[in-house]
Protein backbone atom coordinates (compact mmCIF):
# COMPACT_ATOMS: atom_id res chain seq x y z
CA UNK A 1 0.00 0.00 0.00
CA UNK A 2 1.26 3.45 -0.91
CA UNK A 3 2.27 5.87 1.82
CA UNK A 4 -0.20 8.58 2.79
CA UNK A 5 2.59 11.14 2.90
CA UNK A 6 5.74 10.79 0.82
CA UNK A 7 8.50 13.37 1.14
CA UNK A 8 11.15 13.00 -1.53
CA UNK A 9 14.48 14.78 -1.44
CA UNK A 10 13.25 18.15 -0.26
CA UNK A 11 15.64 20.98 0.58
CA UNK A 12 15.25 24.57 1.71
CA UNK A 13 17.76 27.39 1.94
CA UNK A 14 17.33 30.67 3.76
CA UNK A 15 19.63 33.39 2.42
CA UNK A 16 22.39 30.87 1.77
CA UNK A 17 21.86 28.91 4.95
CA UNK A 18 20.83 25.34 4.40
CA UNK A 19 17.89 24.65 6.71
CA UNK A 20 16.76 21.32 5.25
CA UNK A 21 18.92 19.20 2.97
CA UNK A 22 17.62 16.42 0.78
CA UNK A 23 15.25 14.80 3.26
CA UNK A 24 13.24 11.76 2.23
CA UNK A 25 10.73 9.78 4.25
CA UNK A 26 7.28 8.27 3.98
CA UNK A 27 4.45 7.91 6.45
CA UNK A 28 2.02 5.04 5.81
CA UNK A 29 -1.64 5.48 6.58
CA UNK A 30 -2.55 5.00 10.23
CA UNK A 31 0.96 5.36 11.60
CA UNK A 32 2.29 7.74 14.22
CA UNK A 33 5.57 9.08 12.94
CA UNK A 34 7.92 11.37 14.87
CA UNK A 35 10.65 13.73 13.73
CA UNK A 36 13.21 14.56 16.35
CA UNK A 37 16.47 16.46 16.41
CA UNK A 38 18.29 19.14 18.37
CA UNK A 39 17.27 22.78 18.13
CA UNK A 40 18.00 24.28 14.74
CA UNK A 41 18.02 20.88 13.05
CA UNK A 42 15.45 22.05 10.52
CA UNK A 43 12.42 20.31 12.00
CA UNK A 44 10.14 23.33 11.90
CA UNK A 45 11.24 24.24 8.37
CA UNK A 46 10.48 20.70 7.23
CA UNK A 47 7.13 20.87 8.98
CA UNK A 48 6.31 24.20 7.37
CA UNK A 49 7.09 22.84 3.92
CA UNK A 50 4.60 20.02 4.42
CA UNK A 51 2.02 22.48 5.80
CA UNK A 52 2.40 24.74 2.76
CA UNK A 53 4.02 27.71 4.52
CA UNK A 54 7.25 27.37 2.52
CA UNK A 55 7.76 25.97 -0.94
CA UNK A 56 10.68 23.51 -1.04
CA UNK A 57 13.65 24.56 -3.18
CA UNK A 58 14.03 21.03 -4.50
CA UNK A 59 12.15 17.75 -4.21
CA UNK A 60 8.51 16.97 -3.89
CA UNK A 61 5.84 16.18 -1.33
CA UNK A 62 3.07 13.77 -2.26
CA UNK A 63 0.01 13.44 -0.08
CA UNK A 64 -2.76 10.97 -0.74
CA UNK A 65 -1.65 10.61 -4.35
CA UNK A 66 -1.26 14.33 -5.20
CA UNK A 67 1.70 16.65 -5.18
CA UNK A 68 1.13 19.28 -2.50
CA UNK A 69 4.47 21.11 -2.45
CA UNK A 70 3.97 24.75 -3.33
CA UNK A 71 0.28 24.68 -2.39
CA UNK A 72 -0.92 27.39 -0.01
CA UNK A 73 -1.50 26.42 3.65
CA UNK A 74 -5.27 26.60 3.24
CA UNK A 75 -5.22 24.38 0.16
CA UNK A 76 -3.03 21.87 2.02
CA UNK A 77 -5.57 21.82 4.83
CA UNK A 78 -8.45 21.30 2.43
CA UNK A 79 -6.55 18.33 0.98
CA UNK A 80 -6.67 16.76 4.43
CA UNK A 81 -3.70 17.88 6.51
CA UNK A 82 -4.42 19.51 9.86
CA UNK A 83 -1.68 21.28 11.79
CA UNK A 84 -0.93 22.86 15.14
CA UNK A 85 1.48 25.71 15.87
CA UNK A 86 4.49 25.42 18.12
CA UNK A 87 3.49 28.63 19.89
CA UNK A 88 -0.23 28.01 20.25
CA UNK A 89 -2.42 30.50 18.43
CA UNK A 90 -6.06 30.05 19.33
CA UNK A 91 -8.49 32.79 18.26
CA UNK A 92 -8.46 34.63 21.59
CA UNK A 93 -11.76 36.50 21.36
CA UNK A 94 -13.73 33.42 20.34
CA UNK A 95 -14.95 30.83 22.80
CA UNK A 96 -13.45 27.36 22.95
CA UNK A 97 -16.32 25.82 21.01
CA UNK A 98 -16.27 28.62 18.42
CA UNK A 99 -12.55 28.02 17.89
CA UNK A 100 -13.21 24.38 17.14
CA UNK A 101 -16.35 25.15 15.17
CA UNK A 102 -14.34 27.34 12.77
CA UNK A 103 -12.32 24.23 11.98
CA UNK A 104 -15.42 22.06 11.66
CA UNK A 105 -17.06 24.54 9.29
CA UNK A 106 -14.59 23.49 6.62
CA UNK A 107 -16.36 20.15 6.10
CA UNK A 108 -19.74 21.06 7.65
CA UNK A 109 -20.97 24.30 6.10
CA UNK A 110 -24.10 24.11 8.20
CA UNK A 111 -23.60 25.91 11.50
CA UNK A 112 -25.48 23.51 13.76
CA UNK A 113 -23.84 20.40 12.34
CA UNK A 114 -20.45 22.12 12.65
CA UNK A 115 -21.23 22.87 16.28
CA UNK A 116 -22.23 19.25 16.87
CA UNK A 117 -19.00 18.10 15.27
CA UNK A 118 -17.07 20.60 17.41
CA UNK A 119 -18.68 19.20 20.55
CA UNK A 120 -17.65 15.67 19.60
CA UNK A 121 -14.05 16.78 19.18
CA UNK A 122 -14.15 18.73 22.44
CA UNK A 123 -15.27 15.58 24.27
CA UNK A 124 -12.29 13.72 22.89
CA UNK A 125 -9.90 16.42 24.02
CA UNK A 126 -11.40 16.82 27.51
CA UNK A 127 -12.44 20.39 26.79
CA UNK A 128 -16.20 20.03 26.62
CA UNK A 129 -16.77 21.54 30.07
CA UNK A 130 -14.83 24.64 29.09
CA UNK A 131 -16.54 25.13 25.74
CA UNK A 132 -18.17 28.48 26.54
CA UNK A 133 -15.05 30.08 27.96
CA UNK A 134 -13.15 32.53 25.82
CA UNK A 135 -10.02 30.86 24.46
CA UNK A 136 -7.87 33.59 25.97
CA UNK A 137 -8.81 32.44 29.48
CA UNK A 138 -7.44 28.90 29.09
CA UNK A 139 -4.28 27.60 30.73
CA UNK A 140 -1.40 26.46 28.52
CA UNK A 141 -2.21 22.72 28.66
CA UNK A 142 -5.81 23.48 27.75
CA UNK A 143 -4.72 25.75 24.93
CA UNK A 144 -2.45 23.02 23.60
CA UNK A 145 -5.39 20.62 23.53
CA UNK A 146 -7.59 23.28 21.96
CA UNK A 147 -5.00 23.66 19.22
CA UNK A 148 -5.22 19.91 18.55
CA UNK A 149 -9.01 19.99 18.73
CA UNK A 150 -9.24 22.78 16.19
CA UNK A 151 -6.99 20.94 13.76
CA UNK A 152 -8.92 17.70 14.28
CA UNK A 153 -12.19 19.46 13.56
CA UNK A 154 -11.08 19.99 9.96
CA UNK A 155 -11.27 16.18 9.71
CA UNK A 156 -7.75 15.64 8.43
CA UNK A 157 -6.32 12.40 7.13
CA UNK A 158 -2.97 13.48 8.50
CA UNK A 159 -2.41 15.49 11.67
CA UNK A 160 0.81 17.51 11.95
CA UNK A 161 1.75 18.31 15.53
CA UNK A 162 4.46 20.88 16.16
CA UNK A 163 5.84 20.27 19.67
CA UNK A 164 2.49 19.91 21.37
CA UNK A 165 4.16 18.57 24.51
CA UNK A 166 6.54 21.50 24.95
CA UNK A 167 5.93 23.31 28.19
CA UNK A 168 3.67 20.61 29.63
CA UNK A 169 4.28 18.94 32.98
CA UNK A 170 4.78 15.12 32.93
CA UNK A 171 1.20 14.36 34.00
CA UNK A 172 -0.16 16.62 31.29
CA UNK A 173 2.20 15.07 28.75
CA UNK A 174 0.87 11.64 29.66
CA UNK A 175 -2.68 12.92 29.29
CA UNK A 176 -1.93 14.26 25.82
CA UNK A 177 -0.17 11.01 24.85
CA UNK A 178 -3.20 9.02 25.96
CA UNK A 179 -5.56 11.24 23.99
CA UNK A 180 -3.49 11.03 20.82
CA UNK A 181 -3.10 7.26 21.15
CA UNK A 182 -6.81 6.85 21.58
CA UNK A 183 -7.61 8.99 18.55
CA UNK A 184 -5.11 7.02 16.49
CA UNK A 185 -6.60 3.76 17.72
CA UNK A 186 -10.25 4.71 17.29
CA UNK A 187 -10.12 6.52 13.98
CA UNK A 188 -6.90 5.31 12.36
CA UNK A 189 -5.76 8.91 12.00
CA UNK A 190 -2.20 9.27 10.73
CA UNK A 191 -0.08 11.54 12.91
CA UNK A 192 3.23 13.21 12.16
CA UNK A 193 4.77 14.90 15.16
CA UNK A 194 7.81 17.03 15.78
CA UNK A 195 8.78 16.56 19.35
CA UNK A 196 11.43 17.29 21.92
CA UNK A 197 9.91 15.37 24.80
CA UNK A 198 11.44 11.92 24.31
CA UNK A 199 9.15 10.36 26.86
CA UNK A 200 6.20 11.16 24.61
CA UNK A 201 7.99 10.18 21.43
CA UNK A 202 9.01 6.79 22.79
CA UNK A 203 5.52 5.88 23.86
CA UNK A 204 3.71 7.27 20.81
CA UNK A 205 5.76 6.85 17.67
CA UNK A 206 5.90 3.72 15.58
CA UNK A 207 8.87 5.15 13.72
CA UNK A 208 11.26 8.05 14.16
CA UNK A 209 13.25 10.21 11.78
CA UNK A 210 16.24 12.05 13.25
CA UNK A 211 17.31 15.35 11.73
CA UNK A 212 20.66 16.97 12.31
CA UNK A 213 21.87 20.13 10.57
CA UNK A 214 18.97 19.80 8.16
CA UNK A 215 19.78 16.25 7.07
CA UNK A 216 18.20 12.95 8.03
CA UNK A 217 20.76 10.89 9.96
CA UNK A 218 18.64 7.99 11.10
CA UNK A 219 15.23 6.44 10.66
CA UNK A 220 13.53 3.44 12.21
CA UNK A 221 11.68 2.13 15.24
CA UNK A 222 12.32 4.18 18.41
CA UNK A 223 14.24 1.53 20.33
CA UNK A 224 16.69 1.02 17.49
CA UNK A 225 17.07 4.67 16.55
CA UNK A 226 18.01 5.89 20.00
CA UNK A 227 20.86 3.39 20.08
CA UNK A 228 22.45 4.44 16.83
CA UNK A 229 25.81 6.05 17.55
CA UNK A 230 25.24 8.96 15.17
CA UNK A 231 22.04 9.84 16.95
CA UNK A 232 23.49 9.49 20.40
CA UNK A 233 26.39 11.68 19.43
CA UNK A 234 24.52 14.43 17.66
CA UNK A 235 21.39 14.71 19.64
CA UNK A 236 20.97 12.63 22.71
CA UNK A 237 24.56 13.16 23.70
CA UNK A 238 24.27 16.88 23.41
CA UNK A 239 21.06 17.12 25.34
CA UNK A 240 21.97 14.47 27.92
CA UNK A 241 18.85 12.38 27.90
Amino acid sequence: MAALLAVEGISKNFSGLRAVADVTFAVPEGEIFAIIGPNGAGKTTLFNMIAGVFRPDTGGITFDGTRIDGMTPDAVCRRGIGRTFQLVRPFPALTVEENVMVGALLRHPNLSSALRRAHEVLWRLDLFDKRTQPASSLTLPDRKRLEVARALATEPKLLLLDEVMAGLRPTETDRMVEILKKINNDTGLTILLIEHVMRAVMSLAARILVLHHGAAIAEGVPEAVVREPAVVQSYLGAEAL
Binding site: P73, R83, F85, A151
Partner: peptide
Protein backbone atom coordinates in the same frame (compact mmCIF):
# COMPACT_ATOMS: atom_id res chain seq x y z
CA UNK B 1 -2.18 32.47 9.65
CA UNK B 2 -4.07 30.21 12.02
CA UNK B 3 -7.18 30.73 9.89
CA UNK B 4 -5.32 29.59 6.79
CA UNK B 5 -4.13 26.50 8.62
CA UNK B 6 -7.80 25.58 9.06
CA UNK B 7 -8.35 25.58 5.32
CA UNK B 8 -9.85 29.05 5.06
CA UNK B 9 -9.03 30.75 1.76
Amino acid sequence: EAARSLGID
